[in-house]
């Protein structure tokens, strides 16, 4: 515990912390493996195979959008807040991208940028409401959820906007890495690479930057941070901006994936994102969480959804199971916390 002053610090002396972290990662990761094996056994029993390259690619593609959405949500939840608007912020970003590229005939990169920044702008509004006007995050972001949802319908006149022909956008996002097909039509999907890149960036932001440090500080003890001279309002606002930007990125990816902007898509995805974050071990009471956990959490959600689909469980039951899994994850998190205390 004690360390002779002045001597070089032994690496990883904080053993308890590392062990707890390791356990947390192992728990979620272990659950993911168990889940995959579970579906494999089920598939073998009904005479098919779950562990195929196609399925892997499908799961990667299916996870990517909500995975990116959950990255931003992780920051907000670590501060002890919640952002319910990410689903419909995704929608409005998707719509803005589509509007720019189709009816405004702007170049694709501009459309992507506008979609991305739309997310950031919505995040900024959330941030101002929560950090400066001191509204409860739940209520403020619930309001923005509906604002974004309504605006999306207004902008599209409630009709989907389809991209006419290939403009390089869809194929750029949905294609295979280097155009290489590894098995049939399937290669490594670029959208998955983009998600992993976004995750790496998020992990860097959370673990290595001032913003990340204050994200944890706010969730751990906001008053202490304030009394230490941290500009709490500013950093909290930025956390919501970051969350909005990730939602914007998810919107752009979603537009590419669907080849269109669907004004009704997105609503409800906030719950999948929050599930992924919580399953990944981030505490809803704030102060702790990891990006790796969130990524694993997102995969758990989508392996579950995809797996149940694959073995022909009716969709309504898939929803029930997903709900139970979230409750289970929170309960396990609770148990672990109690043990540590």
């Amino acid at each position: 515990m004690s360390n002779a002053p002045g001597l070089p610090l032994p690496a990883g002396r904080s053993g308890a912390l590392i062990r707890a972290d390791f356990f947390q990662r192992f728990l979620a990761f272990g659950a993911l493996i168990v889940l995959i094996l579970f579906f494999q056994v089920w598939c073998v029993a009904i005479g098919t195979n779950f562990l195929t390259f196609e399925n892997l690619v499908n799961i990667l593609v299916a996870t990517a959008v909500v995975g990116v959405l959950a990255l931003g949500e992780t920051f907000v939840i670590i501060t002890g807040g919640i952002d319910l608007s990410v689903g419909t912020v995704l929608t409005i970003s998707m719509v803005m991208t589509a509007v720019c590229i189709t009816s405004q005939h702007l170049p694709v990169p501009v459309g992507i940028l506008v979609g991305f920044l739309t997310g950031g702008l919505m995040g900024l509004i959330n941030g101002v409401l929560v950090a400066h006007l001191k509204l409860a995050p739940f209520i403020a972001t619930l309001g923005i959820l509906n604002v974004a949802r309504g605006l999306s319908l207004v902008l599209t006149q409630t009709r989907p906007i389809y991209f006419a022909g290939d403009n390089g956008f869809q194929s750029g996002v949905m294609g295979n890495l280097f155009g290489v097909k590894l098995s049939g039509e399937f290669g490594i999907p670029i959208i998955a690479i983009l998600m992993f890149a976004a995750a790496l960036f998020a992990a860097f932001l959370l673990g290595k930057t001032v913003l990340g440090r204050y994200t944890f500080a706010l969730g751990s003890n906001e008053e202490a941070a304030r009394l230490s001279g941290v500009n709490v309002a500013k950093w909290k606002m930025l956390v919501y901006v970051v969350c909005g930007l990730f939602a914007g990125l998810a919107g752009v990816l979603s537009a590419a994936r669907l080849g269109s902007a669907q004004p009704a898509t997105g609503f409800g995805l906030e719950l999948s994102a929050i599930s992924a974050v919580v399953i990944g071990g981030t505490s809803l009471s704030g102060g702790e969480g990891t990006i790796l956990g969130t990524v694993i959490g997102a995969f758990i959600v989508y392996v579950l959804t995809y797996g149940l689909q694959f073995v022909n469980v009716p969709q309504e039951w898939q929803i029930v199971v997903t709900g139970i899994v979230v409750i289970g994850a929170v309960y396990i998190d609770n148990l672990r916390r109690r043990q540590r205390a």
Partner: peptide, 25 residues
């Protein structure tokens, strides 16, 4: 007024973290 989830050093220098060559890092 400490942040229990952060380390001792992180608590002491909260708000004025030493930064590397890149700003914010």
């Amino acid at each position: 007024n400490l942040m229990p989830h952060l380390t001792v050093a992180q608590n002491i220098f909260i708000g004025r973290e030493p930064q590397g060559r890149l700003p914010f890092v």
